Amino acid sequence: MTDSDAVLMAASLDEPERFAVLFDRHAPTIHRYVARRLGRDAADDITAETFLTAFRIRARYDSGRAGVRPWLHGIAAKLISRHRREEVKALRLLARTGHDPVAESWTDSADDRVTAQSVSRPLAKAVAKLSEGDRHALLLFAWADFTYQEIAEALDIPVGTVRSRLNRARRKLRSATGLLSPFTEPTGQAAPFAPHTPEGDLA
Results as ranks from 00 to 15, higher is better:
D41I: 12
D41S: 15
A42S: 06
A42N: 07
A42K: 06
D45M: 07
D45Y: 07
I46Q: 07
T47A: 09
A48W: 03
A48K: 07
E49I: 04
F51P: 06
F51S: 06
F51R: 01
F51N: 08
L52W: 01
T53I: 03
T53M: 00
A54E: 02
A54C: 09
A54R: 01
F55H: 00
R56M: 04
R56L: 07
I57E: 13
I57T: 15
R58E: 00
A59V: 04
Y61T: 02
S63D: 05
A66C: 12
A66I: 10
A66G: 11
A66M: 10
G67W: 01
R69E: 13
P70Q: 02
W71E: 04
G74W: 12
G74Y: 06
I75G: 02
A76C: 08
A76S: 14
A76F: 07
A76K: 04
A77L: 08
K78R: 15
L79H: 05
H83S: 06
H83E: 12
R84I: 05
E87Y: 06
K89W: 07
L91D: 04
R92H: 15
R92V: 11
L93H: 13
L94C: 11
T97H: 05
T97A: 05
H99F: 10
H99K: 08
D100Q: 11
D100W: 10
P101A: 04
P101Y: 06
V102P: 09
V102T: 15
A103T: 09
A103P: 01
E104G: 00
E104D: 02
D108L: 13
S109E: 12
S109H: 15
D112G: 08
R113A: 13
V114R: 14
T115Q: 12
A116L: 12
A116R: 14
A116G: 09
S118W: 08
S118C: 09
V119Q: 14
V119I: 14
R121S: 08
P122C: 04
L123D: 02
A124W: 02
K125G: 15
L130F: 03
L130C: 00
L130E: 02
S131D: 12
E132N: 02
E132L: 01
G133T: 00
H136M: 09
A137N: 02
L138V: 04
L138K: 03
L139A: 05
L140H: 12
F141W: 10
A142Y: 06
W143M: 14
W143G: 12
D145G: 12
D145L: 14
D145Q: 15
F146W: 13
T147M: 11
T147H: 15
T147C: 08
Y148S: 05
Y148W: 10
Y148C: 01
E150H: 07
E150C: 06
I151E: 03
A154Y: 03
L155I: 01
D156A: 14
D156I: 05
D156M: 12
P158T: 04
V162P: 00
R163M: 03
S164E: 09
R165F: 03
N167Q: 05
N167W: 07
A169S: 11
A169D: 05
R170T: 03
R171E: 06
K172V: 04
K172E: 05
R174T: 14
A176P: 02
A176Q: 04
T177Y: 12
G178V: 05
G178Q: 14
G178C: 13
G178K: 11
L179H: 15
L180I: 13
L180M: 09
